[in-house]
Design a protein around this nucleic acid. Sequence first.
DNA 1: CGGGTTTGACCAGCGC
DNA 2: GCGCTGGTCAAACCCG
Length: 221
Amino acid sequence: MAAVGAHPVLYHHPAPAGDASSMSSYFSHGGSSTTSSSASSFTAALAPTTTALAEHFDISEFLFDDAAGAGVAGAPGVFADGAARPVVLPVPDAAGGGAIIGAAAGGAAAASEVPERPRTTRIAFRTRSEIEILDDGYKWRKYGKKSVKNSPNPRNYYRCSTEGCNVKKRVERDKDDPSYVVTTYEGMHNHVSPSTVYYASQDAASGRFFVAGTQPPGSLN
DNA sequence: CGGGTTTGACCAGCGC
DNA sequence: GCGCTGGTCAAACCCG
C-alpha cells in the first residue's frame, strides 16, 4: 500500500453563482492513512439534491484531473505534491456501478430506461489514484471485504461510522485498469462532514469576506 | 481500553 | 431445487 502520510482534508469551495447544487467541493487526499478507514476520501458525496444529481450530475463539476486541478482557484494547497491527484471519471459500464449510477431516490428523469432502482441514492465513479482509500472527510468503518467474480481485485465495504448515518460505500480497483479505483456510495449522510474545512472567500465587488462550506459555522441550529 | 480492521461464516437473491 | 455470488455479521485481533 502506498502509505503516504498526509492528512485527509476536504476542501469546500464556494459554489459558483447559479450552481444550485452547491456541491462543488474539492477533495484532496494527501495520501492514505495506513489504516484504511478513517477517512476515505472523496467528496462527491452524495449530493444533497438527488434529483439534480440524477439529471444533471456532471462529475466534472467536482472532480479534477491534473489540468483542472492545477487550475483550481481558491483552493490553494490542495495539491501539495503531484503524487496523489485523483482523477475521477465516470464509470464506464454499469454492472457493478454504471457510469455514475445516478442516484436513485426521487429523481431519475431517465428512469424510463431503468425499470426500478433502489430507493437509496447511489453514485459510482472511478478515481485515478494509487491509493484506494480516498478521503472525503467522512469517517468510514470497514465492515467487510470480498473478492468478486468479475474482478481480480477484492471489494471493500465501508459504512459511515457516525451513529445514525447509514451511508455505505464500496471500493474496488478497476478490473481493466488497476490504476483506477471504483467507488460506489450508497445513501446520503445525515450529518456534516467532520473534517469539513471552512474558509473565507472575498467578494470582489464589496470586498467582504464570507465563509463557505456545507453549512456556515454560525448557522448550525 | 476503546475503536477500528481482518476474515471466515452466514444469509439472501438470482439464474439455470 | 440447487449452486453461485454479493453483501453483511461477528468474533478475534491489532493499534494508538
